[in-house]
Computed example of a mutant assay.
Amino acid sequence: MGIAYDEELINHAIQTLFTYLFERRKSISVPVSPFAYLASSLRRLVLKEAGKRRNDCLSIDDVQVAGYDFGLEVDAEATMVRAECTEQTVRALQGALNGLTNMQREIIYLKYYEGLDNKSISEITGYADKTIRNVASTALARLRKDKMLGRAYG
C-alpha cells in the first residue's frame, strides 16, 4: 500500500504472487530470506500492474510522478505512547518524512519499520548495498537537520 494506494491493484498483485508460488511450488528453491523474497516479488508485481494501468513500466523513482507515492506515515498512537510526544511532534515528524524522496522513504521504512538489514533491503529493492547505506545516511541526516523536528524534540 506504500507504493500504490489502490486496494484492488494490491489484492490482485498478492493473488498473482501466491498463485505463481503455488503453481511452481515444486520447482522453486527455498529463499535465504522468505520475507525479502515475498516483499521484492510483491513490489515488482505492484509496479508492473501500476505500469500496465498507465501503459508503461514504472520504477520506485517514477511512482510519484505517475500518481503513486511511497507513503510512510507515522503511527501516531504508538509514537505518542513510546515517546509521550504531542500532536505537534507527530505532525513535525510526518512533515519531515514527507520531505524525503520516495527512495529515501522506502529504505527508511524497510530498515526501521520492518527491521531489515541492508542485504535484505538490497534483495527487495534491487539497489546496491552501498546505495542503501548512502541513501539511509542521507535521509537520517536530512531528518536530523529538519528545523520543525528539532523544535518538536528540542
Rank of each mutant, 00 (worst) to 15 (best):
Arg142Cys: 00
Ile108Pro: 00
Tyr37Val: 03
Pro31Ala: 04
Leu97Asp: 01
Glu106Val: 06
Ser33Gly: 09
Leu17Phe: 08
Gln88Met: 09
Lys48Arg: 14
Ile124Val: 15
Gly99His: 03
Lys26Trp: 07
Asn118Lys: 11
Val65Ile: 12
Lys130Asn: 10
Tyr112Gln: 06
Leu93Met: 14
Ala76Glu: 15
Ile124Met: 06
Leu143Val: 01
Ala78Val: 13
Tyr113Leu: 13
Leu47Val: 08
Ile28Glu: 11
Arg151His: 08
Arg133Phe: 10
Val30His: 11
Glu7Phe: 13
Leu45Lys: 13
Arg133Asp: 13
Leu72Ser: 00
Val32Cys: 06
Thr89His: 10
Arg133Asn: 13
Ala128Tyr: 04
Ala152Ile: 03
Pro34Leu: 06
Asp146His: 11
Lys48Leu: 13
Asp62Glu: 13
Gly67Trp: 11
Ser122Gln: 10
Leu58Met: 07
Val46Met: 05
Thr19Tyr: 07
Arg144Gly: 03
Ser137Asp: 09
Arg105Leu: 00
Glu8Gln: 10
Ala4His: 07
Ala76Gly: 14
Gly115Pro: 07
Arg82Gln: 12
Ile28His: 10
Asn102Cys: 13
Lys111Trp: 02
Ala66Val: 11
Glu106Cys: 12
Lys111Leu: 02
Phe18Arg: 11
Arg25Met: 06
Ile14Asn: 02
Leu42Asn: 05
Ala96Glu: 01
Ile107Cys: 00
Thr19Leu: 13
Lys119Leu: 13
Tyr109Trp: 08
Gln64Asn: 11
Ser29Phe: 07
Asn102Gly: 13
Ile108Trp: 01
Ile60Thr: 13
Arg91Met: 09
Tyr112Arg: 06
Glu114Cys: 12
Leu93Ile: 03
Glu49Phe: 15
Arg144Thr: 06
Met103Glu: 13
Ala96Ile: 01
Tyr153Lys: 10
Ser27Cys: 05
Asn102Leu: 05
Leu110Gly: 01
Ala66Cys: 12
Ile121His: 02
Phe35Thr: 11
Tyr109Arg: 04
Arg151Ile: 10
Tyr112His: 15
Ala83Asn: 11
